[in-house]
């Protein structure tokens, strides 16, 4: 069957590459999608276009690990799912909007503002 030939098992002349087959690049491996902490999230809106993130992009979010200043995060704030930039000021974490249209929002689980995951990669299906 066609799917089984990978440059190795030729019928006439032995393939000199038989021991060197590596297969196609597997993006799910590169993006580590099988890791239990990885979740895909769809971007709605364009306020982060300045950081190269467009409406409709797929973000790979990671729920493990700790917060880092300057990182993009998926946050939950008062019932909404947001993409925001994380910054640290006066020992507390703040969510910054992508184009400064909103004032910073303090991360405070007691007030239902919390970090859901860190953004690790961006995927754009159609460039």
């Amino acid at each position: 069957m066609s799917a089984r030939y990978a440059g190795d098992r030729t019928t006439g002349f032995a393939s000199p590459a038989a021991d060197a087959v590596e297969g196609p690049i597997d993006l799910s491996q590169i993006l580590d999608l099988k890791n239990p902490s990885r979740y895909p999230v769809r971007v709605r809106g364009a306020t982060f276009a300045g950081r190269g993130i467009l409406d409709g992009d797929i973000l790979i979010a990671d729920t493990a690990g700790s917060p880092q200043a300057g990182q993009l995060v998926i946050a939950w704030a008062a019932g909404r799912v947001l993409l925001a930039e994380l910054q640290k000021r006066d020992k507390t974490w703040w969510l910054l909007s992508g184009d400064d249209t909103h004032p910073p929002l303090q991360v405070d689980p007691a007030r239902d503002v919390e970090i859901w995951a860190n953004v690790t990669s961006v995927v754009r299906e159609k460039a």
């Binding site: 999230v41 971007v43 946050a75 799912v81 925001a84």
Partner: peptide, 15 residues
Amino acid sequence: RYTTRLEEIMEAQTW
């Protein structure tokens, strides 16, 4: 099906 279907994943609003 947030984790198994690309057309159904969670959506985040840019802020």
